[in-house]
């Protein structure tokens, strides 16, 4: 597959993926642009792979998880945590939109690697093996990252339902 064709087919999906893991569309754009420019330089090799998309996704993920974006990620997380603090208690429990937004805020404050694993599972529908490949870790690590993320989200979810129950 040629580079241009790859970009045409996958750019939108890649932007969606990057936005979901970074929770910041501008940072996501920055990362995707940089990664694609780098990928273009070595497309001869990437294009010949079985799964170029998986490889490029790995580049995007690595870039985000690298120290380069540590500060940005922290700032985004702080911002989102602030938003999350205000949002849920005001919401009507019957409001599906509010419920989704509350979950979104909770995902945004997960540790970066856990969120990446979660997005790979629930947005990209990747298997444990594929996630391991993208994150560059063992499958057992993927499972522990995912289960920790789900545990955190579940705890919050229970706490939230309980709070809303009292109010309603």
């Amino acid at each position: 597959m040629g580079f241009d064709q790859f970009v045409t087919d996958r750019l939108d999906r890649l932007l969606g993926y990057a936005t979901a893991i970074t929770c910041d569309k501008h940072l996501a754009q920055d990362i995707v642009q940089n990664v694609l420019m780098r990928a273009q330089g070595k497309w001869e090799r990437i294009g010949a792979m079985d799964a170029p998309y998986l490889y490029v996704k790995r580049m995007v993920t690595n870039d985000y998880l690298s120290w380069r974006h540590r500060k940005a990620a922290r700032e985004i997380a702080v911002e989102r945590a602030e938003l999350a603090r205000h949002a849920p208690s005001m919401a009507d429990p019957a409001d599906a939109h509010a419920e989704r937004e509350a979950m979104r805020a909770r995902i945004a404050v997960l540790p970066r690697k856990q969120r990446a694993a979660l997005v790979l599972r629930f947005y990209e529908d990747c298997s444990d093996a594929e996630i391991a490949q993208v994150l560059g870790c063992a499958e057992s690590t993927v499972r522990s990252q995912l289960s920790r993320a789900l545990q955190t989200l579940r705890t919050h979810e229970l706490a939230r339902s309980a709070t809303l129950g009292v109010h309603s």
Binding site: D12, L15, G16, Y17, A18, T19, A20, C23, K25, H26, A28, Q29, E99, R100, E101, M103, R104, I107, A108, L118, V119, F122, Y123, L150, L153, R154, E157
Partner: peptide
């Protein structure tokens, strides 16, 4: 809860440029 997670992530991704 998994459906909710799925929807939340999709909403986040929807913000893309």
């Amino acid at each position: 809860m998994n459906d909710l997670i799925r929807q939340a992530i999709a909403a986040e991704a929807e913000e893309r440029v």
